[in-house]
Computed example of a mutant assay.
Amino acid sequence: MEVKLSQIQPYLLSALRIALGLVILSFGIGKIFHFHPGPFSPPPGSLDWIAGVIELTAGGLFLVGLLTRISAFLLSGQMAFAYLLVHLPVSFYPTENDGYAAAVFSFVFLYFVAAGPGPLSIDKLTRPALRKSM
């Protein structure tokens, strides 16, 4: 039995969503629950803490594939905002301003706004319209 890459593409999309969701969720867990030592413990109410709340909630939703497009849109905007606010003032070039992760995350999340969650998601299981469009 021959498997074509186009047949597993939707499942790879789900795998990418899950991996990216775990990374973003870990940032939110670190910022809100002080799970990691160091700069991952911003004071409540600060801009970094608010980013942590977004990463925790939208990242968790994105991870399980619930309201995926909405959470991806919020996370894409957050990453773009982080790049513009924190990294761009240092330098235009991501290799000089350490903003490469924020830039890449922003565009990958933006891709998920258009692509959807993939077949391994709560959205796919609970929303009949999504089942037909995937």
Rank of each mutant, 00 (worst) to 15 (best):
P128N: 04
L88E: 11
I122E: 04
P10C: 03
L20R: 04
I29G: 12
F35G: 15
L67F: 14
L130T: 11
Q9E: 08
L84M: 07
A15Q: 01
I18L: 02
Q9A: 15
M134G: 15
I50K: 07
A19N: 07
F73V: 12
A115M: 06
S91N: 10
E55F: 09
I29W: 06
G52W: 01
A101T: 15
L110N: 12
A115I: 09
F35S: 15
S41I: 13
G65L: 04
P89E: 01
L63N: 00
S41V: 13
K124D: 14
A80E: 03
F62S: 08
I70N: 02
Y11P: 05
S46K: 04
L22Q: 05
L74S: 10
A19F: 06
P94W: 01
D123E: 01
F27V: 15
S91C: 08
S121K: 04
A82T: 13
I122W: 01
P119L: 09
P39F: 03
G21Q: 00
L47Y: 05
L85D: 11
T68L: 04
H36P: 11
A115P: 14
P37K: 09
Q7D: 06
F107C: 14
L61D: 07
Y11K: 02
S6Y: 00
Y100I: 15
D48Q: 14
V113G: 07
G30V: 11
L88S: 14
F81P: 13
L125Q: 12
L75K: 08
G60Q: 05
A102T: 15
S133N: 10
P39H: 04
Y83E: 03
D48H: 10
F62I: 08
H36I: 14
N97Q: 04
A15E: 01
I8R: 01
L125A: 12
L120P: 07
H87Y: 07
P10I: 06
F112I: 08
F81E: 12
E2S: 11
V90C: 10
P44D: 08
G28I: 03
G45M: 00
G38T: 09
G60V: 09
G28N: 03
F109P: 11
S91M: 02
P42A: 08
G65P: 05
L88K: 13
G38Y: 01
S106K: 10
S91Q: 02
W49V: 13
V3L: 09
S133C: 10
R127K: 10
R127E: 06
S14A: 04
A82S: 14
V53S: 11
A129Q: 09
F40A: 15
A19T: 10
S26H: 05
